[in-house]
């Protein structure tokens, strides 16, 4: 009886905590949506108006008519899909090489590559642009896609490496005895057991490419090739920003991510089932 009551109490507490935190975490989204339904003169009134009055739907009309949503979406996906695939495939391979194979100099190489995360873009921007411009790839998507196929960045490699290293080595040894090579071990053993981690890097790189503003800003000039994130800046003038329109377009832009995230995190549950095989 006591145990049951304790459980009920604990569940109630968990729900209470979750709901309170949810409210706090929902505020920015609510704020964005409410701003997208207000005209520029009321967005900044004080104290803030929490409920738009009047509701300015025209921001959405405007954003949808002046913002070539589908063209930008197409452009964004043209970059995002190959970059995402490249990141997942190459980060998985590289992380396996750093986590599951013990070779001389491994940690040194890993440390060297990790240093790429430590230099701010401010100073690498110009040399990197210089290189792409000499290669003739400015105003194409190449600089935004191709690097993803070469490891997909140390963040992702490091993350997968950490997860791969928690899987007991015994499995590999057994598989090796059965004549499996490294590719087979990776594909049949490591990948299924690391699904939550791989989904995590997929979510991160999706978000990165979806929201990437600076990359397209630096490399893309042709208005026809603009992406969703870059397109948002089209509303900004030198002296003014059209806030209502900007907020409406931003809202439209993050809706797909919310849906995608909602769907993607469900596969974490599948991860549990597989994780249960362990030990």
């Amino acid at each position: 009886m006591t145990i049951q009551r304790q459980t009920i109490f604990r569940t109630a507490l968990a729900y209470f905590g979750l709901i309170m935190l949810s409210i706090i975490f929902l505020i920015p989204l609510y704020w964005l949506v409410r701003s997208s339904l207000m005209d520029d003169s009321t967005i900044f009134t004080f104290p803030p108006q929490w409920i738009p009055n009047p509701v300015a739907w025209e921001n959405y009309d405007f954003a949808l008519s002046r913002y070539p949503l589908f063209q930008y979406l197409g452009n964004t996906l043209t970059i995002l899909i190959p970059a995402l695939v490249g990141t997942i495939v190459s980060a998985t391979l590289v992380a396996y090489g750093f986590a599951r194979i013990s070779w001389p100099g491994r940690d040194l190489v890993f440390g060297l590559l990790l240093s790429t995360l430590m230099l701010p873009y401010v100073v690498t921007l110009i040399p990197t642009f210089f290189m792409w411009s000499r290669l003739g790839f400015v105003d194409t998507y190449v600089p935004l896609i191709v690097p993803s196929w070469f490891g997909g960045g140390m963040f992702n490699i490091f993350l997968l490496r950490q997860f791969f290293r928690t899987i007991p080595q015994d499995y590999d040894e057994a598989a090796t005895l059965d004549g499996a090579n490294h590719f087979q071990i990776l594909w049949h053993l490591i990948v299924p057991m690391s699904r939550p981690a791989i989904i995590t890097i997929a979510i991160f790189s999706f978000l990165h490419h979806w929201n990437d503003f600076l990359g397209p800003l630096i490399y893309i000039s042709d208005p026809e090739k603009q992406t969703l994130a870059l397109g948002l800046s089209n509303f900004q003038g030198y002296y003014s920003a059209e806030w209502g329109h900007l907020m409406a377009a931003s809202t439209l832009m993050i809706l797909p991510i919310i849906v995608l995230f909602f769907v993607a995190q469900k596969y974490f549950i599948k991860g549990i089932a597989l994780g249960g095989l362990k030990g």
């Binding site: 208005p223 900004q236 030198y238």
Partner: peptide
């Protein structure tokens, strides 16, 4: 220094 869709642009 302005978006093509801004009034200035």
């Amino acid at each position: 220094w302005a978006g093509c869709e801004s009034s200035e642009g």
